[in-house]
Write a protein that binds this DNA or RNA. Structure first.
Lengths: 243, 243
DNA sequence: GTCTGTGAAGGGCTTCACAGCT
DNA sequence: AGCTGTGAAGCCCTTCACAGAC
């Protein structure tokens, strides 16, 4: 959902794993399922089982995994623990990401407390806000720091990922400051498009857009049901009569 | 990011607008920009301007809009107000969606207070939770109700969209109950895959997956920079010397 | 001349079917 | 026999280039 400008300046010299964007998104999902399987003590899993749990077709899953090189054993299945490690490596999760979060409003607070981050190798190392009422309070085990000290503190924190959870009006300036301290990965919850240098990856999560997409397919389905639901019933009857 | 099984049972009889999924996602973005333009008092906008503000190419934007039929005037541009209405209609936002939210933890609270919903035609009509400590409290102007009264209350509320913001362990059962009260659009923040009937659209937002995708392209970029960044500098030097 | 609308070419992702290993 | 790995076909989407309206 984020633009992938496919880096026109890419000189094709160094290329790590060349994995399709869509596959990367699903690898993250498989990882979740695999972690659950590890906890259950499952040792081997087949592509059918894994695909079912992840909600995709088994062929698609095998194709996805094929980008990591041979990971399974034919006639048997996949070694759960080994596959999990392999995916973590491919996604770069072995590097131990340090996350700074800017904006500790209600959304920021929820994110800081979200257990899914820590459990998957993302350590939140800093919380920042400009509101004096929030600075100094403790959220999710961390003390909220003054945005005025942001640049200085980041020298120590050395963050690899920045999260933007501030109001729209200041989102771009926060983005610039993140870029200024050399953060190359930014996750923004501000609804607008943010401009950043080409070598900085910005992903945007817009909750209203998710809702609007639901609204579209929803109105399509409702419509179809109010019509074809009945139509299907009629056809079924007609078919029954006719045959 | 949600599966689109492309409705195998679709008899092709009734078809509303036949708009590509990817386009729908962007239409929602254009809508945001257009709303901002309306507030600024802008009357006419060109595809270049609109595309720049939305962060896409102008050709892509025009292609997207072409699915709505002729919406602009050649040699002039688009009527901002008219285009906004046209998109709202296409997305089914004119129907006034009623949203019920289940799970009022820190995430649920943040969502309930999120101003972007109300401002775009989504009215939150009910908050539910099973935790006695939360039931009865007021969040975002609404009183949190007991999950035990869910089915009964929904008869009155007649929700069109359901939001799931509960822990993983109960997400599927909440999903089933939403389906039970005839909600056909579900937005889930639980990390796992949820099963639902075919005519129910489930979208999932997994924050950890967004992070992991960042991690991937991030490690790819960092790598590339540590190598090609320097290489590029060397090449620039070499080029300067050579020319 | 300017800017929109659109057929056509191109690229990426999905699906299928089957070869290949155990 | 069972299950993985993978070329090939097909589909959807993006990009290009230009015809067409003002």
């Amino acid at each position: 959902m984020t633009e992938q400008p496919s880096a026109p300046g890419d000189s094709g010299a160094v290329r790590s794993a060349d994995i399709p964007q869509a596959t990367v998104a699903r690898l993250a999902m498989y990882l979740r399922v695999l972690s659950a399987l590890v906890e259950d003590g499952t040792l081997i899993v087949s592509s059918d089982e894994l695909a079912l749990a992840a909600g995709v077709g088994s062929a698609k899953l095998r194709k996805d995994l094929s980008f990591l090189g041979p990971t399974g054993v034919r006639g048997v299945g996949y070694d759960v623990a080994r596959l999990r490690e392999r995916i973590e490596l491919a996604l770069g999760l072995d590097q131990g990401h340090r996350v700074v979060m800017v904006g500790v409003g209600s959304l920021g607070r929820a994110l800081a407390c979200y257990p899914g981050f820590a459990s998957r190798g993302f350590t939140i190392v800093g919380l920042f806000d400009a509101d004096p009422a929030v600075i100094g309070t403790v959220v999710g085990g961390l003390t909220v720091e003054d945005m005025a000290t942001f640049e200085t503190r980041c020298l120590d924190l050395d963050p690899t990922i920045g999260v933007i959870a501030v109001p729209e009006s200041v989102a771009q300036s926060i983005c610039d400051r993140l870029v200024g301290v050399d953060v190359r990965c930014i996750l923004s919850f501000a609804p607008q498009f943010l401009t950043a240098p080409e070598n900085v990856e910005v992903r945007r999560v817009d909750l209203a857009i998710e809702m609007q997409m639901l609204s579209f397919t929803g109105s399509r389905n409702t419509w179809a049901n109010e019509a074809t639901g009945d139509v299907a019933a009629h056809l079924a009857l007609a078919g029954a009569v006719q045959s």
